[in-house]
Structures are given as structure tokens and as C-alpha cells.
């Protein structure tokens, strides 16, 4: 629930003033000092999480665990400032497109109208959901309140458009699979064969093809030929071939993540963020 009342807005204003003061201070600081400040706070942030993890926590919590909402809140504050910058950049870009009538300016109108409508009805939905926004006009349409309009735009528009985009992936999978499975090389042929076995082994039609191979012999013991049932071959491919390969990749990725995190945390990185001036 959003906050209300003078005290809430007073705290909000105080927070804004403090944040702008910090930003102004950072902007005014010499470039070298600014980088040291950023490196220091990066280290401090990482140190908190490292200490919180390594300090013994017999009951599942230690003396640092309680500060996690505060640290998460700091991240949210920085994020909320950045949203303003992102929105500014987006609106500026589309206003420029519109003012110069660049190709596709019609899309900019759609975006700006949608943006204003979602913002207005989104805020009204939080603070005044029962306010009438569209009055009843004869027998044409009934009155609509802010909550109804927001639901119409969000659930009726945005959510459905998202679902429609998601469903398009099915067609893209078909076209990508067509290209991937063309038998151009040994690797593509192996991929095609493996995919075919896994797909056929996952449907009842496929399992019916090898249903004649019984899992048990007449004396009740395991039938070794049952390994050749298509669903068993598919399972073997998934568990004994695919999973180890994926785990190998995951080992590399996790070590890469650890190394990169260490470089950022300790400001060892010499790249776009902490260059040689530091």
C-alpha cells in the first residue's frame, strides 16, 4: 500500500533533498576522488554480504542479518532515482522523433499516449480508485472508475500483449529448429538424431514404437534389451549426455561469476568502470 499523509510526504521530500545533496556532492568532487568514493562504497556493500554470509549463524541469523531490509532499501532508492532518468530518456527520444516526424513517428504517439494513460490511471488506482473517470453517456457506455480503467489497460491490454508476444516464440522455435536441423555437418546430424530421439521418446506414439521390448524377462528378471526402448534412450541422452555437459558449463560459469565479482568488489577491474586513473 502506498503511504499517505503529511508525515509520509515530508519524509519523501527529506529523502529527495538528501539524495540530491549526495549527487551534487559527487558531481562536484574531483574525478579521482569520485572514483575512490565509488570504489569504497562498492567494497563496503560487498563486505556486508560477505560478513553476513561467513559470520556464524547458529539459529540461521547473525547480528548482520537484521540489516538486510535496510541494505535492500538503499538499492531500491538508487533504483527509483534511475527510473526517473530512464523515463526522461524514453520520453525525450520519442518527443524528438515526433517533432522531427522521423519514420515511425506514429509509434511514438502510441507510446506517449500509453505512457501518460498508464501513469495517470496507475496513480489514481493507488490513491483514488473509486474516482469516476468516464461518466455514463446515454446508452453508449456506463461510467468507469479509475480502478476499472487501470484494470482495462493493465490486464486487458499490457498482460494480453505480453502473452501474445510469448506465444510467438512457438513459431520462432519452428523456424530456428528448421535451420539447426538441416544436415549440413556431422554435428548438425548428431543434433538432429538426438533431438529426434528425445522428441519421439517423449510422446505416446514414440513409446508405442518400442513397446514390444518388455522390461522384464519371462523369469521376472530385468530385460537388458529394455535399454533400447526409445523412452529409455531419450532419458539416457538427457541424463547421461545432456546433464553432464550442462553441469560442465555451469562450473565454468560459476567460477567466472566468482572471479568477476571479486574483481568488481576489490576494484581490480581496469575497464569501463574503474580505469587506470584510480
Amino acid at each position: 500500500m502506498p503511504g499517505h499523509g503529511a508525515a509520509y510526504f515530508g519524509k519523501l521530500a527529506f529523502g529527495l533533498v538528501v539524495m540530491f545533496a549526495i549527487l551534487a556532492g559527487l558531481q562536484a568532487a574531483p574525478r579521482r576522488s569520485r572514483k575512490i568514493i565509488i570504489a569504497f562504497f562498492t567494497f563496503l556493500g560487498g563486505l556486508y554480504f560477505a560478513l553476513e554470509f561467513f559470520y556464524p549463524a547458529p539459529s540461521g541469523e547473525n547480528f548482520l542479518t537484521g540489516y538486510q531490509p535496510l541494505v535492500a532499501g538503499l538499492g531500491a532508492v538508487i533504483g527509483s532515482f534511475a527510473i526517473g532518468l530512464g523515463v526522461f530518456s524514453l520520453v525525450q527520444l520519442h518527443l524528438r522523433t515526433l517533432s522531427r516526424l522521423r519514420p515511425g513517428w506514429g509509434y511514438s504517439i502510441v507510446l506517449l499516449v500509453s505512457f501518460v494513460a498508464m501513469t495517470v490511471f496507475g496513480l489514481m488506482n493507488e490513491y483514488s480508485p473509486n474516482a469516476t473517470v468516464i461518466p455514463t453517456v446515454g446508452g453508449l457506455w456506463q461510467s468507469q472508475n479509475a480502478h476499472g480503467m487501470f484494470r482495462f489497460l493493465f490486464s486487458g491490454g499490457l498482460s494480453n500483449l505480453g502473452s501474445a508476444t510469448f506465444s510467438i516464440i512457438a513459431f520462432y522455435i519452428a523456424s530456428a529448429a528448421y535451420r539447426a536441423f538441416r544436415l549440413r555437418s556431422i554435428e548438425a546430424t548428431l543434433l538432429m538424431a538426438a533431438a529426434l530421439i528425445v522428441m519421439v521418446g517423449s510422446v505416446s506414439f514414440g513409446t508405442a514404437l518400442t513397446a514390444g521390448i518388455h522390461p522384464k524377462l519371462t523369469d521376472g528378471s530385468e530385460n537388458p534389451w529394455a535399454n533400447l526402448r526409445i523412452e529409455n534412450i531419450a532419458q539416457w541422452l538427457l541424463m547421461e549426455v545432456n546433464t553432464p555437459a550442462q553441469r560442465g558449463i555451469l562450473f565454468g560459469l560459476t567460477l567466472g561469476l566468482l572471479a568477476t565479482s571479486l574483481r568488481y568488489w576489490l576494484s581490480l577491474e581496469r575497464g569501463a568502470y574503474f580505469d587506470k586513473e584510480l
Binding site: L90, Q92, L158
Partner: peptide, 14 residues
């Protein structure tokens, strides 16, 4: 140019 980096939306499929 300023418009080279474009923030589009926070929604995945949008």
C-alpha cells in the same frame, strides 16, 4: 548521441 542507449520498458515481452 543521447538516443543511442534506449530504455524501452521494464516488462520482459514488451
Amino acid at each position: 548521441e543521447e538516443g543511442d542507449v534506449r530504455y524501452l520498458t521494464g516488462q520482459q515481452f514488451a
